[in-house]
């Protein structure tokens, strides 16, 4: 048990997991309330285009991925509000567009980059102390801003039209939430991977909602679910030699099913 912490990459992975858990949990709380799960999937996949562009230009893929993800999530939100398309149609389009751009960028860089795989499926070996700083900064920003705007975000999630009439800056809050959703996706992708990160934007909140009707306990339970999943998943994947991202997601899904069944018995 001790040896695992003597490895620097494992220490970094645990640090990252522990910092990401509350961020993903709180964001998932709103994703579930606002039924944005599919937006999470779309934004995560669109980050792939950004990563590929980073590799092509030889600059930090995290930076380009953040720009891509924020642009795509806000475009989805904009079209959802102004266009005649439903949000999920917009997601379907951008999702494909950004992925296709990614494939083209990879082709242009004519060196098939192994690191890309790490971004798709998560690679805990790759987490550097720089990444930890980015997670701490952006994750901290996400948490603090949600804390400060909590009641407004709650109202808008409850009833957008009424919130608008009550003077809530609905459009700002929508785009703001999509932006922090995109940030959360990007800072989680090295550890969990683009393909699976959206699971953690849904499962903690969904699991918590099975066993409570109040938002404060719901958030607390979501954080616990995320922490148990990431820490437990990392430990298990290390000893069983499994992919860390997938192990984390499987563990969180198992917790969801347990709470789902517990929720059935509660009523």
């Amino acid at each position: 048990m001790i040896e695992i912490f003597s490895l620097e990459f494992m220490r970094n992975a645990f640090m990252a997991g522990i910092m990401l858990s509350p961020v993903l949990a709180v964001v998932s709380f709103f994703v579930v309330l606002r039924r944005l799960s599919f937006v999470g999937v779309g934004v995560a996949h669109s980050a792939f285009g950004g990563i590929a562009l980073g590799f092509l230009l030889g600059i930090s893929p995290t930076l380009t991925a953040i720009v891509f993800a924020i642009a795509v999530s806000n475009a989805i939100g904009y079209i959802g509000r102004h266009g005649k398309l439903s949000a999920d149609t917009a997601i379907g389009i951008f999702f494909a567009f950004a992925m296709a751009l990614g494939v083209v960028f990879i082709g242009m860089s004519d060196q098939y980059n192994v690191d890309l795989f790490g971004y798709l499926f998560g690679n805990i070996l790759a987490i550097t102390s720089n990444d930890l700083i980015i997670i701490a900064l952006l994750g901290g920003f996400v948490l603090i801003s949600i804390f400060l705007l909590f009641k407004e975000l709650l109202f808008v999630s409850f009833d957008k039209e009424v919130a608008l009439v009550s003077g809530m800056p609905v459009a700002f809050l929508d785009h703001f939430f999509l932006t922090i959703l995109a940030m959360s996706v990007v800072i989680s992708m090295k550890i969990i991977g683009i393909i699976l990160v959206s699971a953690l934007l849904v499962i903690p909140g969904a699991a918590a909602s099975q066993i409570t009707d109040r938002y404060i306990p719901m958030i607390a339970i979501a954080i616990a679910v995320a922490l148990i999943s990431t820490v437990g998943g990392l430990l298990f994947s290390y000893y069983a030699d499994l992919a860390s991202g997938a192990t984390i997601v499987i563990l969180s899904s198992i917790i969801f099913f347990i709470l789902f069944i517990a929720g059935r018995f509660r009523r």
């Binding site: 309330l33 409850f158 039209e161």
Partner: peptide, 17 residues
């Protein structure tokens, strides 16, 4: 203004009192 819409879009399972 206080507004009461005809059909509230509010979700029944929303975790508030």
């Amino acid at each position: 203004v206080g507004y009461l819409p005809q059909i509230s879009k509010a979700d029944r399972s929303f975790p508030v009192t």
